[in-house]
Amino acid sequence: MKIRKPDGFKSEKLIVLPDHILMEASSHPLVRPLYVTDTGYFPRALHHYRERPEGSEAVIVIFCMEGEGWYRLGSGRAQPVGQGQAIVIPARTSHAYGSSEEHPWSIYWWHFKGEQTEAFFEGFGLGPNPGHQSGHEPVHESGHGPEAEEATTHVSESDEWNNIGVGAPGTSDGGDLTVPPSRPVKTAASLPVTLPPDKARQLTELFQEGYALLEQGYTLNHIIYVSQLAHHLAAILRLCRLQPQDGIFRHSQHDITQTVRYMMDRLEGTVTLKQLAAQARVSVPHFTQRFKEATGYSPIDYYLRLKIQLACRHLDLTGQSVKEISHRLGFQDPYYFSRLFKKIMGKSPSEYRGTRKG
């Protein structure tokens, strides 16, 4: 008979805050948006298994520090979870998860509630998820994936794209090109999130700090402090989710961070969409799709916004004219630069420079 254990592991840590204390604390404005109801650490949790057909009232976050495990949402397929990966299970969503028998996982875990929980974990099957693809929809609280929503503010005009070395939108080199991949893909909402070593260390430290404080008592001040740690944890996961999770970039030893670095190294020149896809070692359609899913912007939109951010620093810190700055950043037409600046910043370069800061 297969052994299954929900808890009871050697050296485990476990805290479940009492309902009556949480009810009172959750009315505080610094706790209300997001707070921890349960948290724990299960080391080398052999035979660990939990199944909740009706789901949990809380959002569950599990971080695998070492070893291996798996999880399943709704009637979907089980997904493997490995060292350095985190999963987010939406509230009221049928799920199951468990440890590998061969390489038992060691996990930190949290249960979260709060008025803004969906906003904090947006993209993990909670709230809008613009990048999801039909065929692999994440499981949501209602059991259905929402329609994709476009949230990008486009800044291109067909005659203006040529000024920065790219074709008009809609062409094979256009910045607004969004071509669905030829096969269904899994999205960041339905896959574990891989954390870089520094972020994995931060997540571990956040658990240890919060757990140690709650051990000293469930006072309102302690709960407020742990609630703020929860904000930090959610922000880390949100940032890490922006990296591609389906292996398209990972297979080529590339990620979005490298692409952004490539852009930033060339802010005083020009780049094309083909160049960006080539340095990522993927096709233009797949690169565009993945980049937009990760950032919310098409690659060239993002590149232009980086240019305008640098323009702001030049306006703030140098005495160069608008024309000089526009030429320095690779814009041959200062009038186009000024129009683009106003679209992104909400005011002209001259108005921006005249705004009191600090």
Rank of each mutant, 00 (worst) to 15 (best):
K5F: 10
L17A: 07
A25N: 06
S26M: 03
R32A: 14
R32P: 01
V36F: 02
G40F: 05
F42A: 00
E57Y: 12
A58H: 08
G67S: 09
G76V: 14
Q79F: 09
P80N: 11
G84H: 10
A86W: 06
R92H: 15
S100T: 07
Y108S: 01
F124N: 02
S142N: 13
E147T: 11
E150R: 11
E150I: 15
A151W: 13
T153P: 04
W161C: 00
A168N: 11
G170D: 12
V185S: 13
S190K: 05
D198V: 09
L203G: 02
Y211S: 04
Y211G: 02
Y211K: 03
A230Q: 03
L233F: 05
I236W: 06
I236L: 10
C240Q: 14
R241W: 10
L242P: 01
P244N: 11
Q245W: 04
D246I: 01
R261G: 04
G269H: 04
L276W: 03
V282S: 09
Q289A: 08
R290C: 01
R290W: 04
K292A: 05
L304Y: 11
A311M: 06
R313K: 07
D316N: 15
L317V: 00
V322F: 07
G330C: 03
P334Y: 07
S338L: 10
R339I: 05
F341Y: 11
K343L: 14
G346M: 10
T355P: 13
